[in-house]
């Protein structure tokens, strides 16, 4: 289980997230909607533990452990993984090196080439990571790395943006494998939190709950398909106006 309790986050001394709370139970996948600049990426980066995203109050509880002050790499090793909206290019470091870093001692060449094939990136393994990659290639490479890492909590920042119609099915497949979709929910260990603008990913992924972020706050929580419908028909303003949070058990 993952619990975020009244989290306030500042970037360069400017408060971006205010009093954000959400809970993802083991095996569940949730999605996060919200207009540009509302704070979605900030939430994921703070959950992952990037030093620039300063938690000024509140807490993050992962599997019953308070990880609010835990460094980035330790969170990764505990089982939290992220796919970046815009990952950096690292010159000289090959895609293969990244995948093998994610794998740690869990496998060698064979597993790497299997993953590469699965993500349709076999020709990219000896290229420098993200250097000259297209938008869609970046997304697939991020998911391939996560498949190697096998995190328990997967944070995906717009995994489908800029991906064409053919590739989106592949992206959907990779995400489902990451989130163990084929496994009955009560046996599933993996949790996911996915940022999406288009909601296209909902056609592939079984998401239980949706949130709308607005101005650094979670303004709405509910069925993701209904939220998406409201946003599409009436825009974010309307969606936020209701401001009724159906918080179960609260």
């Amino acid at each position: 289980m993952l619990e975020i309790k009244q989290l306030t986050v500042a970037v360069e001394d400017k408060e971006i997230l205010h009093d954000v709370s959400l809970t993802i139970k083991t095996g569940e996948t949730h999605v996060l909607f919200g207009p540009n600049g509302s704070g979605k990426t900030t939430l994921l980066m703070a959950m992952m533990g990037f030093p620039k995203y300063q938690v000024t109050s509140g807490s993050i509880i992962f599997r019953g452990m308070d990880i609010t002050g835990l460094p980035l790499d330790e969170r990764s090793r505990l089982g939290i993984g992220i796919s970046f909206q815009r990952p950096p290019v690292v010159r000289g470091v090959k895609t293969r090196d990244m995948v093998s870093a994610c794998l740690k001692e869990r496998g060698g060449e064979e597993i790497i080439s299997k993953l590469a094939k699965k993500a349709d990136l076999a020709d990219f393994m000896d290229r420098e990571i993200n250097y000259g990659f297209s938008g869609g290639e970046i997304k697939r490479s991020e998911l391939m790395q996560l498949l190697a890492q096998k995190p328990e909590l997967t944070l995906l920042d717009e995994p489908e943006s800029g991906v064409d119609l053919v590739n989106i099915a592949l992206i959907g497949e990779l995400i489902n494998e990451l989130l163990e979709k084929d496994c009955p929910i009560r046996f599933r260990k993996c949790m996911g939190l996915i940022i999406t603008h288009t909601g296209n990913i909902l056609d592939y992924v079984n998401a239980l709950t949706g949130y709308v972020m607005y101005d650094g706050r979670i303004g709405c929580e509910g069925d993701p398909h209904e939220i998406l419908k409201t946003i599409k028909e009436k825009g974010y303003e309307e969606c936020i106006r209701c401001l009724v949070r159906e918080v179960p058990n609260a």
Partner: peptide, 25 residues
């Protein structure tokens, strides 16, 4: 930003630095 990218994949700061240097050379 590059160090943090590798650290998000589970490498320690030292390991991430070594990986980047190795790649650079």
């Amino acid at each position: 930003e590059e160090l943090e990218y590798l650290m998000a994949r589970g490498l320690t700061r030292t390991e991430a630095t070594a990986t980047i240097i190795r790649g650079f050379l």
